[in-house]
């Protein structure tokens, strides 16, 4: 058995990474495609304020963080729905407001700086059995939500007005999406830290968008990539003795760069090939007749 599995803390860290790697990017597909990545950033700062409150009041941090993100998610969605504030303004108010709360609370109590830092940058090696259960329950809830509302989520992501006219209750679904974004962040913050949570939600999705086709497949591929980068990142971090959260995100970014280069090379090669084929008059005529010239459709 590799020595990485000899330590119980390391086993817990790997299980936590798999839970987070599978959940955060799958959920992230709907955020990225709706250009709502910023909501993940905002709610991660809200979670940080929640953690600061929990440390000050000596309560269980994930529960307070979840309560804080849920409250913020509902408020942001209501503000946006009632058009009291434009969507991005509402996000900015919550992002800076919660960061300010966290900063003030840190200044009040000097004692918990190191614990707070572990939430800022992740501390997967200190994940306890209770943390793990808590993460598993949230991961199951998030996965069930995505399975049960798969069609509705896909429709709202494609176009909210069309979804509404199709009979989808868009407002309720948006509310659910925002609340579970908070839950996803709460699950993920122990692994990569609140500052890097957004990366785990977004980057595997970008890789998946490069290499796969179909919405359902994109969700599953994102999840697989998420698990892969989390486990690989964690293993590298263990052997190189470096920060696990940052290593996971850097692993994901490396994979993204490879995928982008691969796609670029394929496109460049494809274009070169296309030029040769176009000389074949019959083929050129056929592609024109179907109006499906790949290189000239807008992507």
């Amino acid at each position: 058995m590799p020595d990485i599995f000899q330590y119980e803390f390391m086993n817990r860290a790997i299980i936590a990474s798999v839970l987070v790697g599978a959940t955060a990017p799958a959920f992230g597909v709907f955020l990225v495609l709706r250009r709502l990545s910023l909501i993940a950033d905002t709610l991660s700062h809200v979670a940080l304020a929640g953690v600061a409150i929990a440390l000050l009041t000596k309560t269980f941090a994930p529960v307070i963080a979840l309560a804080a993100t849920t409250g913020a998610a509902v408020s942001i969605e209501e503000l946006r729905m009632r058009r009291l504030l434009p969507g991005d303004a509402a996000l900015a108010v919550f992002l800076y407001g919660s960061l300010a709360i966290a900063v003030v609370l840190i200044s009040i109590a000097d004692g918990f700086n190191s614990t707070l830092f572990s939430y800022l940058f992740g501390s997967v090696l200190t994940v306890t059995q209770t943390d793990l259960w808590w993460m598993a329950v949230l991961a199951v809830i998030i996965t069930l939500f995505m399975l049960m509302f798969s069609s509705e989520l896909a429709q709202v992501t494609f176009d909210p007005d069309l979804a509404r006219i199709n009979g989808v209750r868009v407002h309720l679904l948006n509310l659910g999406l925002a609340i579970l974004t908070g839950a996803t962040i709460t699950v993920s913050m122990r692994v990569v830290g609140v500052l890097l949570v957004g990366a785990l939600i977004v980057i595997p999705v970008l890789i998946s968008l490069r290499i796969t086709k179909g919405l359902t497949r994109t969700v599953f591929t994102s999840s697989i990539i998420g698990v892969f980068v989390s486990v690989v990142g964690m293993t590298i971090a263990y052997y190189a003795d470096i920060a696990p959260g940052g290593t996971v995100v850097l692993t994901a970014i490396t994979l993204l760069v490879i995928a982008e280069f691969g796609a670029f090379a394929k496109r460049y090669g494809g274009r070169h090939e296309h030029q040769v084929i176009v000389e074949d008059h019959a083929h050129a005529h056929e592609s024109h007749a179907h109006g499906v010239d790949d290189e000239h459709t807008h992507r």
Partner: peptide
């Protein structure tokens, strides 16, 4: 909204949205 960017859905997936007949927990 989704026409730009790399929206990953296939044409069949989008056309199939038209068959939606309300929430069902086991729709998948």
């Amino acid at each position: 909204q989704a026409m730009e960017f790399r929206f990953p859905a296939s044409v069949r997936e989008i056309v199939n949205f038209g068959a939606y007949s309300g929430f069902s927990p086991f729709a998948i």
